[in-house]
Design a protein around this nucleic acid. Structure first.
Lengths: 134, 134
DNA sequence: ATGACTGCAAAGACTTTGCATCTTT
DNA sequence: AAAGATGCAAAGTCTTTGCAGTCAT
């Protein structure tokens, strides 16, 4: 009955993969990353388990970048940067989401606020360098 | 050569529709809203023009809600609330996005920051009321 | 046996695109 | 004539789902 029993190996691999990366991958990216370890894993399995984890609250969706959904195993509220050039999604761990904001939002809107996302868009350092060079 | 010349009537109608609503509609919602005024407008035309306006910076995309892209003619940075129950997207005009945040983000990340989006998710008042009643 | 997980292929949903037609210059 | 806008239908892309096969209880 160990956690690695065959029945859950792929499911665990998907979660572990997500927890071990900072790339905020899409379903397909996860599938790619698992190719070596599980060459026979199906994309459908990745989608199914990501949906499951999301429902369980083990991961969160960051929304879509260019029409593709991106996931994050870090469910604590934190700040993201999306590069419009290479579609990379970066954490900005130095920045914090002022906790007051959620309370303010709830107060001034009368809505029940569950979560909050702060997202910057622009061009990442790698792409800036690339364009300078070019 | 007036602005309402036949050639651009539908295009203008789409933009005007978007500018006259606070519902942050999807392409299909825009199409619906224009039915009365332009019963013969095609969904493809709505998509084409929304893409055009977005490129021109006349409107902005708010990302997708449940897999459907939502648009906003208000391109100034402002705060949104997304209801997970009815998919409504509301403005929170009382709240402001601290301008400092963008500068902070640029500084601490080394990225070129173009825009910033602050988004809350939860349950809107209408849905809260509905659920209480039920 | 029953329930659970997966692969495969099919279906689904939203969006984009090619082509013919009609306008405007 | 040439360039631009639109409708229609087809194609495209990402995601979900049905079904059969396999494994665990």
């Amino acid at each position: 009955m160990e956690a690695t029993q065959k029945q859950f190996r792929k499911r665990n691999a998907i979660l572990t993969c997500l927890q071990g990366t900072h790339s905020h991958p899409s379903a397909e990216m996860v599938h790619q990353m698992l190719q070596e370890e599980h060459p026979d894993i199906s994309l459908a399995t990745v989608y199914r388990n990501l949906a499951r984890f999301k429902n369980q609250g083990l991961i969160q969706s960051l929304g879509t970048v260019n029409g593709i959904e991106r996931f994050d195993a870090n469910t604590a509220p934190h700040v993201h940067f999306v590069c419009g050039s290479c579609d990379a999604v970066l954490d900005l761990p130095q920045m914090e989401v002022p906790q007051v904001l959620c309370e303010n939002a709830a107060q001034c809107s009368g809505c029940k606020v569950d979560a909050c996302q702060l997202m910057f868009t622009g061009t990442c350092r790698a792409c800036l360098a690339k364009h300078e060079t070019a």
